[in-house]
Write a protein that binds this DNA or RNA. Structure first.
Ligand SMILES: [Zn+2]
Ligand SMILES: [Zn+2]
Ligand SMILES: [Zn+2]
Ligand SMILES: [Zn+2]
Lengths: 134, 134
DNA sequence: CATTAGATGAAAATATTTTTCAATTACGTA
DNA sequence: TACGTAATTGAAAAATATTTTCATCTAATG
């Protein structure tokens, strides 16, 4: 849970200006994880669409934000901690889990230099299983 | 490595017609894994764009094909075996590995019913590491 | 406060995907 | 084999999504 100030500091440190638009996007991102462009736009009235795209691109390139594919268009989230997503195929809900169930040592042993990984788990959430929802 | 006939048989079994267009798309898919729409189109001259989209949608819905996001637009591959992808951030190459390094038992224990998962590993391939490519 | 490289946004261009609907066809049945 | 029909196709248009352009503006520096 790095504060917004810390994140802005990193941006500045990389030579980027801390514009009101960028602050607004970061603010929007901190409201909720894995939001769509449309949701973020709703939280950033006053920020032009092009700037939204450019800002999110910049934040992704600098590693401050992750672009996700959970099955229905791009989603974005602050890249604060390492976690993964469970997507419920009944209700569409997305939840996160922190415990990383991936072991990439065998890839390293094969000569691949692992920088990052992304894992998505699909199924039915506890609520849908109990409620008998298909 | 199921043969095309087997795959077509599954389609028929589900009540879908085995049209020349569908056969062409399956043929194209069997030429190479994780192809883009553009690549598949190149292998299916004579199949209209709309039919390409519809056929790939159908194949994904029936589980015969997987739609992938490896970072640069959708890619498609026959869903024959369970495997994952390593994406080299230097040369852009995509390679597959069969040994699954994911253990989802802890999610099951939490009440989530796991149906499937997808894992992508990002880094540098052996070739790029040795060649010193950044 | 002046300077300036970097940033913004409106409009246009491009790319991607979906919808519509009339024409065609695969396939079961006679 | 011929027929009937529901499923399928594809051209065009529409809808969506993303990128490019370029004139204007501004954050940061001194
Ligand atoms: Zn659910
Ligand atoms: Zn992980
Ligand atoms: Zn490589
Ligand atoms: Zn796996």
């Amino acid at each position: 849970m790095a504060s917004l100030e810390t994140t802005v500091g990193k941006l500045r440190g990389l030579g980027y200006k801390a514009t009101p638009q960028r602050l607004a996007v970061l603010e929007a991102l901190s409201a909720e994880q894995h939001q769509s462009m449309e949701e973020l736009r709703g939280r950033c009235p006053g920020v032009g669409l092009v700037t939204m795209y450019r800002t999110l691109d910049l934040l992704c390139e600098t590693g401050l934000v992750r672009r996700l594919d959970l099955g229905a268009g791009p989603r974005y989230e602050l890249a604060e901690d390492h976690h993964h997503h469970m997507i419920c195929e009944s209700c569409g809900g997305v939840s996160e889990f922190e415990e990383c169930p991936v072991d990439t040592r065998s890839l390293t042993n094969m000569g691949f230099e692992v920088n990052a990984h992304s894992l998505e788990v699909y199924g039915r959430c506890a609520g849908c299983v109990e409620g008998g929802r298909r």
